[in-house]
Each structure stands twice: as C-alpha cells, then as structure tokens.
Design a protein around this nucleic acid. Structure first.
Lengths: 338, 338
DNA sequence: CAGCTCAAGTTGTACGTATAACGTCCTCGG
DNA sequence: CCGAGGACGTTATACGTACAACTTGAGCTG
C-alpha cells in the first residue's frame, strides 16, 4: 500500500503511444477493426508492453457491470473430492475468461465480517454443494444466479441442479454384493443430513429389500477415520449373526471399517467385504484395494460451471445425471459359508 | 446478465432515507461519529436493510485502489497439503476482511486468456509455493508484494519467505533410523526440482554421512502411487545388500514403497522400515501406520498470509522457521540382523 | 447582538475503464 | 467540382463508491 509509483493506466499507455485513451481501450480490447490503423495498433501494443501495462480489473468490472467471477461453495477443500470439483470448475471457467473464488470454510471465519456477504456485486453467480446449503441464503442474494450440486431437484426451487447418479452407484454396489451371495449388510453411513447421503440409504434399502432373507443394519459416523472405526467396531460387535458386508457412504468411512475388521481379527475380503464411495486416492492406497464407486469429481465441477455459464447466458442448462462406475477391486468376495 | 432490475446502489438507499449519497457512505462505512446524527444513521441503515443493499465491490475497489484480495499459487489443490495451506491462509485473510483466490492449475487453462495475467490490479499481493515458481513472473507483475512458501531464503530476492523447518524434519527422521540401527538407506525422492526437496536430499546425505559404514541410494519418482511403486520396486530389486530403510520425500511416495514391499514379499517394519513426510490422512489409513514428519499445513498457510499482510502494512514480516514434528508409528523398527 | 464554534449534513470529484457519439481528412464516382 | 462515405481517430460520459472540502443553522460567549 505504501507503494510510491502507482501502476500504469491506459492513459499512460496512450501518452506513450501518442494516442487517446479510448484508442488504447479499443486496441487492447480487440475492437479496433476498421477503427484504428494496423500501424497505430502496433504502436499501442508496444507501448503497453514497454510499460508493463495491465488493465485495472476493478475499473473494468465497474464499467462492464460484471466480474466474470463465480463463487463455489463447498464444505471443505481438504476433502479431495471437493478439491477436484474446484479444479474442474476452474478449468471451464478459465476457458471462458472467468475466475472461481471459494467460500472460506465457515468455522474459520469467526466474528470477522464475512468478505462474501458484501461481495455479491463482484460475483456473477454461485455454485453450491448441497452439503453447504444452510449458509447459502445469506451468502447469495435472492437475485444471484445459482447452480446446486448434488441436491434434490424437487427441492431446489428454480435453481439449476447438477447431480451425480448416486442412485445408480448404490444400485451397482448392492447388486454386486447380492450377486456375490451377501445377505446381511452393515450400512456405515455419514452422519450428515444431506440429500446425497439420503439417496444412498434409500437405494440400499430398496434394492436389498427385494431379495429374500436379507437384513440391513445402520451405523452413523462422522466422516473421519477414527469416527468410522469406532462406529464400525461397535456395530460389528453387535448381536450375531454378523453382517458379511459393510457398505460405506464414503471411502474414508471404509478405511475405518478396515481398521475395525483388523481389530476384530476379521480378514478382508475373506471374512468381511467392504465397499466405499468416491474412489479417492485412499481407495488404492490401502490393502486390499477398495471396491468402490468412482465419481468423476472434476467432471462434476465442469458440469456445474457449464450450467452456471448457461444460466448467465440466459440459456437453459443441460439436464441429466452424470454417470458413475463401480470399480471392483480386492475388498469384496463371496461370504464365507456358514 | 439479462436481469431487468439492477441491484440497488447507495444512491437508491440515500433517496429512500432522504439523505445524500455521501451520508449513506459515511454511515455504512462506520465513519459517521460526530458527522451524522444517530437518528439519521438509523434511518439509513433501515433503508439499506429494506432495499437489500450491498455495496458494489468493483466500485469500492476502484475508489480505494485496493481489492483486499490475495492470490495463492499452489501446484495442485487435490494435494491435501496445499488444500490445508489454502484453508489456513483463507482463515487469516477472512479475519482481516481479505479474500484469497487461487491460481488455477496451469495445465487446465489451455489456450484461453489467463484470467489472472490481467487480474493484477484486483490483487493486493501474492503468496506462492516454490513448486510453482516458474510461472510466477508472468502472473505477478514486478511490483506486486510477494511472499514465498518453502523457498530458498537466499534465492528469493527481496520477497519475504515462510518456511517449514524441513531440515530439522529430515534430521529427526535420519536420527530415528540411525538410532534403530539402520545403515543402508533408499531415498525415494520426488522428481521435482524445487528447494524443499533439495533440502531433504542434502540433509539426509549430510546426517547419514556422519555415521560409519553407511550407504544411501536414490530413486526418483513422480508423486503418484504408481510411479513410486515402480521406482521403489526397481530400486529394491537392485544389487545386494538391500537397503533396510526407505526414506520417502512424501507420504504418497511411501504408499508406493508399501506396495513395492508387498510385491517383493517384504514385511513392514520387520523386513523393511519406511518413513514418509507431510502426515497426510493417507499416513494413518495404511497398515502399518506410517512413521512420518508432521507438517502443519494450515499453520503454514496462516503464516504466509500473516506475512503478506505485514508486507502490505509496510511492516517487516516475522522471521523463523515453522517447527515440525516426527511422528513415530508402526512402519519403522530395528533392521533384521544379517 | 456580533462573532465564534460545532453539529449535521451536502456538493463535488476522482478512481480507470469501455463505448456511444462525434469530428476530420481523403478518396472517388458522377 | 461536389457530396458521400470510409478510414482513423477523438471527446465526453457513466459505472458506484469514498472522502475532501464546503455550507448551513443553531447555540453559546463576551
């Protein structure tokens, strides 16, 4: 802030090139065909180069009434899944000259004024994960275009939604396990009240319910290794007969299940099958490698940004769920004959 | 963009409250003590509330000549370490009314105009990880305040630096392994040419060199599980006698080492000790849990942001390395007597 | 009651840009 | 030789805000 020489403006460039400020704006804005001679344009570009001129974004945004910036609201970047969503969104944004800013994790803000509560004018739109929906209304105005990620299409009035095909993912897992012969399941569920996890539970119950002699127990856990370990161990120590397969809402929960199995002396997959959800780096780090559902988080982010851009253009965003894929690895096998 | 009713401005609020626009600015900017009566101030605030007024950030930034925004340049957010750095930086930033934007991963930008190349005017400063230093000069002007993360203090002319005490971390690892009795080491090194990884190699060589009858082999690998697996397997199949400890530059590399050991029929830690670096979630997910050096990535980000804020205030940023901590878990043990 | 002070505002302007609207000169057809 | 139009610009203005400088009236003092 205590910088003496301020940065050069378009007026400085104009002076150096011997033209008016307007001419500089035309040339650098690439709107000079038939309005400025090639020679003059070259002179202007050279002057801009020499001075190291960069347009002042604040002024440009003010003038144009838009910021070419979108806000992405996610629960936590340290979750690899959401980091990948960001990267996908940022890639598409960059292709269209847009930037993406993140809503800082709510618990970290404290009593300070939320920078984004007053930043609405510098944003053109919002992409929000359903997991972060509570704080959403105060961040976003009632007028800012909105795209919801993984949210109940029926419940998000007006806003465009982009969803992964969670239902199909859970269907594939369930059918895989049923085909292997499993009948007694433990559902290790995330203790988060959001649409995407409700769908998992609903689909698991529906599919398993169609087979005979089946049972589904549920244990809720926070999405941490320790939390999952505690919940899984407690549930697996429950009344006989023990479940033969643990269906986890998330790969991280599956790691907890692995640790619980180890404590109980159960081998995976011989004594216990385990499945995850997301296909994070974690899934192939552990032994045996985890059977899970691959979610293309980057594509998810890309679709979210694409949808927002469509809304901004006044078009109708594309519909349709993003397909997911069951990846069978070493953590699932037929149950031991009892 | 095709929105009919534009958002209310401070002038609209002024009209509604029956005062001038300047009065609105004074009241909402909290600079009205002794300039505006309490009653009028209340009227203004009420009007702003009613209209749902939010200041236009672009205009404010233009007027003030600052954006209260910092740019954080990191190689990849999907690396949990850098995601945590972001969260730390964003937390401190928010406390000071600042925002943090990320430099989008370079490979994703493609031929489109880089939004940040021209965004300098909307940025007040840059925090950059050394791993991303190549692209730095074109992003940053030559005038924007800069803080470097994990970079050679001697090499970063003028810019403030914030460093983790990597040297001490490697010292602790080496001494731990030497104390256990190890003499033959494999250094599974990241194939990235950056200061932070040079320090690891240098310190390992220096410390081990002080003991008698020691040997250090080096294998370079990209920081992926597959890459590390290939490099580690190749190195461990090398000429006898085999190394008894694998020192990895990074936890992810250590996972590759685990997989290589498994392929070779070596048990960890009985036949082979393995150490990591970073203490990511991965470290406690695998079995046995990984002996590694804990880096407080969030604190790292906090310190980076604090340093930048100090520079912006014209103060001298605080000095000193951030301490790191050896976390001994189950992946290290005395070598098998030969 | 003249002159001063102070509260309580208002008027005016600048930040840097993009673009609409307005000159010029030059060329060229009729 | 005149007028039309294109090529090549320039001048002027608005975006919404923050703040310096000015105005106005009331109260107080001597």
């Amino acid at each position: 802030m205590a910088r003496g020489s301020t940065r050069p403006t378009s007026r400085d460039v104009a002076r150096a090139a011997g033209v008016s400020q307007a001419a500089v704006s035309l040339v650098l804005g690439d709107k000079w065909r038939g309005r400025v001679s090639e020679a003059t344009a070259a002179r202007v570009r050279q002057a801009a180069q020499d001075l190291g001129y960069r347009p002042n974004l604040a002024a440009r945004n003010l003038r144009l009434g838009q910021a070419r910036t979108a806000l992405l609201v996610v629960p936590a970047l340290t979750n690899e899944f959401f980091a990948a969503v960001y990267e996908g969104a940022a890639r598409i944004a960059a292709k269209h000259g847009f930037g993406v800013v993140l809503y800082p994790s709510p618990e970290g803000i404290g009593p300070a004024p939320d920078p984004f509560a007053s930043a609405r004018a510098a944003l053109d739109g919002v992409i929000a994960s359903s997991m972060a929906s509570e704080a959403l209304t105060e961040i976003r105005g009632d007028d800012l275009p909105l795209v919801m990620l993984d949210s109940d299409p029926a419940g998000s009035l007006g806003a465009a939604t982009v969803n992964l095909d969670i239902t199909d993912g859970m269907r594939q897992i369930t059918e895989h396990l049923l085909a292997l012969g499993h009948r007694r399941f433990l559902h290790l569920a995330a203790d988060i009240d959001s649409w995407t996890f409700h769908v998992r539970a609903r689909e698991l119950a529906a599919r398993v319910g169609q087979a005979a002699d089946t049972e589904v127990r549920t244990a809720k856990a926070p999405i941490t290794i320790e939390g999952a370990l505690a919940a899984a161990e407690h549930a697996l120590r429950g009344p006989d007969p023990r479940p033969t397969a643990v269906v986890c809402d998330d790969d991280k929960l599956a790691v907890g299940a692995y640790k619980a199995a180890r404590r109980l002396g159960l081998r995976i997959p011989e004594d216990l099958s385990v499945t995850g959800f997301d296909d994070l780096a974690l899934a192939t780090a552990i032994e045996p490698e985890l059977t899970t559902v691959r979610l293309d988080a980057e594509l998810f982010g890309e679709r979210g940004m694409t949808a927002l851009l469509a809304v901004l253009e006044g078009e109708t965003p594309p519909e349709g769920n993003i397909p997911v894929e069951l990846v069978v690895r070493g953590s699932t096998a037929p149950p031991r004959p009892s």
